[in-house]
Amino acid sequence: MADIYFVAAEASGDLLAKEVIQVILRDRPHLEVSGIGGQELASIGIASPIDIAPLSVLGFLEGIKAYGDVVKLADAAADAIIASEPKVVVLVDSWGFMLRVAQRVRARAPHVRLVKLIGPQVWATRPGRAKTLAATVDHLLCMHDIEVDYYAPFGLKTTVIGNPALSRGGKGNREEFRRHNGLLEDDKAILVLPGSRRSEIERVAPSLIDAALSVKKSLPATRLFVQPAESVSDLFFQSFPNVRNEFVVLGNGEGRFDAMAGADIVMACSGTVTSEVAIQETPMIVAYKTGWITWALARGLLYKKKHITLLNILNDDQEIAPEFVQTKQDAALIAAQAVRWLKEPGALANQRALQANALLRLQKEETPAAVLAAGAILEEFSEA
């Protein structure tokens, strides 16, 4: 039996769920917390009753292909939740899957309090999702103040917790990373962050790896580092069997913020990690590519912003960090941007200053997101 039940379907949600659970158990150690998740939840002793690996898909067409798995897993998740008889269920990120789980739990156990931890990007894509979510869950814990107005007409209780990435880990130790890796003050280093989903390793990582290699060809003294996410590390090494010939491969451990801070340029697949890089004020180049059907639908019908990186979106949709998306995701273009930064006097310092100023729009000196989320969840538990 469980008092609170978490469901996390992907790597970023798994990490956030872990952080929130740790706060909950610190404050209320007698509570029974169970969950469905991955390696992060397992690391704190929460064993998942189902394997969520099939949910690591990306895009509309990929989602259709995996639809059968999504439905089966939603059914299995609902079964596991109902069997545990929790008072509160927390559904972390992953809009489509969590909506299905919520609907199934609501139909079978209407007394259970449903909390959605991180909502869909209604301010960037389909605002109609606000009505759908409001009809399905009891409480939304969202990242940004701008989201609240979308839900107010539908009466959904909403709590702004901030961006979890901005209160995660703090500033890395640039000097320690560079000392540990034998980098002198004037040495230049590029860090590649190739993504955390299978589709990102297949579609985005090759351009980032090739771009970094191209930079090294132009500027041979440049040191290259890559840090694949643990969730896709096996696929990454299968896809790039010779990566260690040119790159220093970093583990996905506690030193990742040091690596972000220690690099002179980060080449990253778009995602939560870009907010973490932004904290370090390291110049970053963002890449992203999805299936063409997904892209056509997003650009034609769904996505209302010019940019995809949060640092850019929340700064009046201006390109602070350069983006190379879809047709622009070309290794030569990415490499050319990096070479310009490395060759032009003051270019890296200017980019750091631009990103630092833009970061002020994302970052507030306040309680960490995980603490605010835990407090809201415990309030729901007390009222259940």
Score class of each variant (00 low, 15 high):
K328C: 11
A124L: 13
F237R: 10
S167Y: 03
F225I: 04
Q103F: 01
D138L: 00
V20T: 15
R340I: 01
Q326F: 13
K87Q: 10
L114G: 03
V273C: 04
R104V: 04
V70S: 07
N181F: 01
D79K: 15
A229I: 05
I320W: 12
A189R: 02
F60R: 03
R106L: 05
R129F: 02
A358G: 13
Y303W: 05
E10P: 06
V23M: 11
S207D: 07
L73P: 10
L114Q: 00
N357H: 15
K157A: 09
R26M: 10
G38C: 04
D3H: 08
D79E: 09
I313W: 00
A78H: 08
V371M: 07
K216S: 12
L15M: 14
L314N: 00
D138P: 02
A189H: 03
V20N: 15
G253N: 13
G169E: 13
E365T: 05
E323A: 07
W295R: 14
T125I: 12
A376Y: 14
V232M: 08
T132D: 11
S233H: 14
G13V: 11
L362N: 03
A338W: 01
S34L: 05
Q238N: 15
S56G: 04
A80P: 01
L184H: 10
G271S: 11
A76T: 02
A384R: 03
V325W: 15
S167V: 06
R352Q: 15
A76S: 12
S199M: 09
S382C: 12
G375I: 08
L359C: 06
E202I: 13
I118W: 07
K18R: 14
L55W: 02
L15H: 12
S239W: 08
D330M: 13
E366S: 13
I320T: 07
I52K: 01
V277K: 05
V160K: 13
T132W: 05
K131W: 05
K304N: 11
K305W: 07
A152I: 02
A77C: 10
A268Y: 03
K217E: 14
A374S: 08
P283I: 06
V88W: 01
H180D: 07
N173Y: 06
T274K: 06
A205M: 06
E40Q: 13
S48R: 03
P110N: 06
A152W: 01
K343W: 12
L235P: 02
I118P: 00
A78W: 04
M267P: 00
I46V: 15
G170P: 04
L140K: 00
